[in-house]
Amino acid sequence: MSFLPAIPEILRQFLKRPATNIFPAKYLPPSVTKYLQSVQEGKTSIHPPVETPPNFRGKILYDRDTCIGCKLCIRVCPANAIEFLPETKRVRIYVTQCIFCSQCNDACPVDALHMSDEFLLADEDRYSENMIVE
């Protein structure tokens, strides 16, 4: 089979385990919403996702108490995802705008911004509580 090198390869692979990552479940559930509900209720177990590496850039974390309101994060944010609130001299971050570059983390002089490893951020509302960090 030198002219069809894939044939021995696929026959060998046939006996091996598939490489697919089965997160969140092996097969698509009939209803994804119901599946997620039952996972939350603890009835079904979800196949865990691949572990995030150290220094992963997930949903942003904001420490309001440390923040000094210097606005440097606003100047370096490529997506204009950070809004300054003049009355409290603090910022508000829109996660749906954020592009997860973590540049604000690097720029922050007092280390008030961090990246978590939370990456499952789907939501139905752009401005839901989960999608705004302040």
């Binding site: 696929i10 692979q13 598939p18 490489a19 697919t20």
Partner: peptide, 12 residues
């Protein structure tokens, strides 16, 4: 069959 040859799980 095809899925397993391609290292996939494939549909049920």
């Amino acid at each position: 069959f095809a899925a397993h040859m391609q290292a996939r799980i494939g549909p049920p």
